[in-house]
Simulated scan of single mutants.
Amino acid sequence: MGTKTIGVKDDVYDRLKARKREDESFTDLVNRLLDEATMDWDEGFGTLDAEEAEELEQVVETSRKQTSAGLAERQQEALEELTDAEDADEAA
């Protein structure tokens, strides 16, 4: 297994060194930090409290209603334009 040399700013090095355990290398430290930072995709599910969940549901419902209303309005406008175009073709 090969090695790579990377450059980090002095303050980053100091922060890493402060977290490094006495018995671990910097490679071990980076591996440990990466393992700690790796999260399962579902780890955060179910963490909203009841109030936050209710607020989110309200926001989603409002968004759905606005989207639905916007779509219905655009559909109506498109139908009116088609009807007007057909009427114009018949009159010609």
Rank of each mutant, 00 (worst) to 15 (best):
M1D: 12
G2M: 04
T3W: 12
T3H: 15
K4N: 15
T5D: 14
I6G: 02
I6E: 04
G7S: 08
V8K: 02
D10I: 12
V12H: 08
V12T: 15
L16S: 07
L16A: 05
K17A: 11
R19G: 09
R19D: 10
R19H: 11
K20N: 11
E22H: 10
D23I: 09
E24H: 07
E24D: 13
F26D: 10
T27W: 01
T27I: 11
D28T: 09
D28G: 15
L29D: 08
V30Y: 02
V30S: 03
R32A: 06
R32K: 11
L33E: 13
D35G: 09
D35E: 15
A37V: 06
T38Q: 08
D40T: 13
W41T: 05
D42K: 13
E43F: 13
E43R: 13
G44C: 10
A50G: 07
E51Q: 12
E51C: 03
E51Y: 05
E52T: 07
E52Y: 07
A53V: 02
E61A: 11
T62D: 14
T62E: 14
T62K: 14
R64E: 06
K65L: 07
K65A: 10
A69E: 03
G70D: 01
G70Y: 00
E73P: 00
E73S: 02
Q75Y: 01
Q75E: 06
E77I: 01
E77H: 01
A78R: 05
E80G: 01
L82V: 05
L82A: 09
L82P: 00
D84E: 07
D84W: 00
D84V: 04
E86D: 11
E86R: 11
D87Y: 02
D89W: 04
D89F: 06
E90Y: 00
E90I: 01
E90V: 02
A91T: 04
A91D: 12
